[in-house]
Simulated scan of single mutants.
Amino acid sequence: MLDRAFRRFVTRPLSIQVVSDGRIGMENQALGLAEAVQRLTPADITVKRIRWKPAFDKLPSALKAPWMLDASSDAPFPAPGEPWPDLWIATGRATLPLSLMAKRRSGGRTFVVQTQDPRWRTGDFDLVVAPRHDGIEGPNVLSITGSPHRVTPERVAEGAKAFAERLEALPRPRVAVLVGGKSRTHDLPAGHAASLAFSVGDAIDDAKGSMMVTYSRRTPEVAKDVFTFEMNAPGHLPGLIWDGTGPNPYFAFLHYADHILVTEDSANMAAEAASTGKPVHILPMVATKPADKFARLHADLRDRGAARPFDGTLDGWTYDPLAETDRAAREVLKRMGRD
């Protein structure tokens, strides 16, 4: 124990480079894992956002070269004479060729981690941290429930402070409703949004509780308007529906919620909700394509005791909060020989 403490004291901080295409949902996976590593050992984190020129974006990863990057991209590699990062954590298809180059060009000095299923030879990375519902295996693969994320008890508690006056007084049970929207596999047409709002509103009303509703960037405007109208029916429910202006109450909603309702189209929101230890109810969407991966995720969450399909009631249950990002961070350090 003392030896480990001494090593941490004398070892310089890890340098961690996070790489993504800049989309928040993607970046948060790599950044969340980096921050989890930083909570375990001193580390400095640098974020790089990249994008390929449109003419080259669809090329196979093996054919891409750094000169094909858009001028708006950050430089992904160190300048001559500058050190390579100790740890490279990247997310998404756009980063794959750069991750492979980083492993090769650094001469093994950089430990390369890819999150999500790279749909590439997993042995070409030092570690792949993939959602269990992606169904990939291998000696370099760590499967976790959901994806890495940035939600921690500390960040949730800190985010709640700005909304304490508005949310603490709401009648319990307080119900957070996290609404997604249109994706490759799901949609939220107006009629379905109205039906969902009616069902959710009835459950909250029956429990004499209150609502805390937020939408994603993918929520169609018409669905948002319909859902808001139904939930705001005169004399209906107390609570807060975030309209997208001002500070984002997402963390505050997670903090104050007694129940969390999440539409089935979002793997990230479901995994983040399950990190709170609060009952997670999965709301049905309209499927536009087979969504086996989401079905596997929801089954995984059910097996962990975290989530159940929404059945029109707000019956509660308990489980140990999921801490999969922290587990992945420990595995990264173990494989780097810094545990």
Rank of each mutant, 00 (worst) to 15 (best):
D124F: 05
D124P: 01
D124A: 07
F125P: 00
F125Y: 14
D126S: 02
D126H: 12
V129Q: 08
D134L: 02
I136S: 00
E137Y: 08
E137V: 06
G138M: 06
P139F: 00
V141A: 05
L142D: 10
L142W: 10
L142Y: 03
L142I: 10
S143N: 14
S143Q: 13
I144S: 06
T145P: 06
T145I: 13
T145E: 09
T145L: 14
G146W: 04
S147K: 10
P148N: 05
P148V: 03
H149S: 01
R150M: 04
V151R: 11
V151K: 05
T152G: 02
T152M: 01
T152C: 04
T152N: 03
P153R: 01
E154N: 00
E154S: 08
R155H: 05
V156K: 03
V156H: 03
A157V: 11
E158V: 09
E158W: 08
G159P: 03
A160S: 10
A160F: 05
A160P: 06
A160Q: 07
K161V: 08
A162Q: 08
A164K: 11
A164C: 00
A164R: 13
E165W: 00
R166G: 00
L167Q: 00
E168A: 11
A169Q: 10
L170W: 05
L170E: 03
P171Q: 10
R172I: 08
R174M: 13
R174C: 07
V175W: 10
A176P: 01
A176W: 02
V177F: 06
V177Y: 09
V177T: 08
L178D: 00
L178K: 02
L178T: 04
V179I: 15
V179Q: 01
G180H: 01
S183T: 15
R184L: 13
R184F: 12
H186R: 01
H186E: 12
D187A: 15
D187L: 09
D187H: 03
D187Q: 12
L188E: 01
P189Y: 02
P189H: 00
P189T: 07
A190L: 11
A190D: 13
G191D: 14
H192I: 07
H192M: 12
A194N: 04
F198L: 15
V200K: 07
V200R: 13
V200W: 07
G201E: 12
D202L: 12
A203T: 14
D205N: 12
D205Y: 13
D206H: 13
A207P: 14
K208Y: 10
K208G: 11
K208C: 09
M212S: 04
M212K: 05
V213A: 11
V213H: 03
